[in-house]
């Protein structure tokens, strides 16, 4: 049988799914054990117990100086910035994307401009943002918006343009105005795509967040990683990286579930 026609039993599928994760953990444990056998003070691949100690110190013991549980304050700070940035970007994408996709005047006015702006490397603007907006939250949130919004706008505008023209004309024969076409025909059909666009931008959003936090912050997941980097504290960095990854993966999964729940029709065959 051709490889392309292979069918997997559910059990085999489950095993294959978990295999790379298990392999990663095993490779880490092996590498760690080998390095520690050679040099018990090695900091690059700490043992599981060291990692557990670090997690306990960061997450479940109050910081002796500030009395805060650093892991959680970092998480809250980062998620707050991420939510603000992504929320703003999503709102902009929805409004501008729909307007550009629907209205020829705004499309002519804005589409080439947005296409151009989306090519600006956002990280290169970071120093400018810090100088103009100060080192506080505004500049970090702005970086996420600048990095993420143009692509989402373009994606959404394209989705609007991909709606069959027949649907728009049909809505007109049902007496819809431009506003009502936007509200009852276009908006409900682009919302699932908006959630998908948001999912796809989670990775870049985290990238911009951590870059901004690395340069200037007093809390945050990226801040902590770049702080403890000076002491080669891999025992803190690894749990933080794993936590960030887990958060992003959960958000990705949650958004997809949300889309299926809110827009059941978007899963049906033939409904794009």
């Amino acid at each position: 049988m051709r490889l392309i026609n292979q069918r997997l039993s559910p059990g085999a599928g489950a095993v294959l799914k978990t295999l790379p994760f298990v392999a990663l953990v095993l490779a880490y444990l092996l590498g760690s054990a080998l390095r520690l056998a050679e040099n018990p003070n090695d900091k690059l691949l700490p043992a599981l117990t060291t990692l557990a100690d670090a997690i306990d110190r960061m997450a479940f013991t109050a910081d002796p100086r500030s009395g805060a549980y650093l892991f959680w304050t970092d998480t809250l700070a980062s998620l707050g910035r991420l939510a603000a940035g992504l929320g703003l970007a999503t709102l902009i994408a929805l409004l501008v994307g729909m307007a550009v996709g629907m209205l020829p005047v705004l499309r002519a006015l804005l589409a080439p401009f947005i296409g151009f702006v989306s090519m600006v490397p956002p990280l290169a603007l970071l120093p400018v943002l810090f100088i103009v907006m100060g080192l506080g939250e505004t500049s970090k949130i702005t970086l996420i918006v600048i990095g993420v919004a143009p692509i989402m706008v373009r994606d959404l505008a394209q989705k609007v343009l991909d709606l069959p023209r027949e649907q728009i004309v049909k809505a007109e024969t049902l007496s819809a105005s431009t506003w009502l076409i936007g509200l009852r025909v276009v908006l409900p059909q682009v919302l699932p795509r908006l959630l998908t666009a948001l999912r796809l931008q989670l990775g870049p959003a985290f990238l911009f967040l951590i870059a901004a936090e690395a340069i200037s912050a007093d809390s945050g997941l990226g801040y902590r990683i770049f702080l403890v980097r000076r002491y080669l504290s891999m025992d803190v960095i690894f749990p933080y990286v794993a936590w960030i990854t887990l958060l992003a993966a959960l958000a990705d999964y949650g958004l997809d579930r949300l889309r299926r729940k809110l827009f059941p029709w978007s899963e049906l065959e033939g409904a794009r």
Binding site: K170, T173, P188, A271
Partner: peptide, 19 residues
């Protein structure tokens, strides 16, 4: 110069709203 409710239309495809 534009479609309106006095003229209805049915196409071969895309005549109804999938959502």
């Amino acid at each position: 110069p534009e479609p309106g409710p006095d003229r209805g239309v049915v196409y071969q495809r895309y005549s109804v709203f999938p959502h």
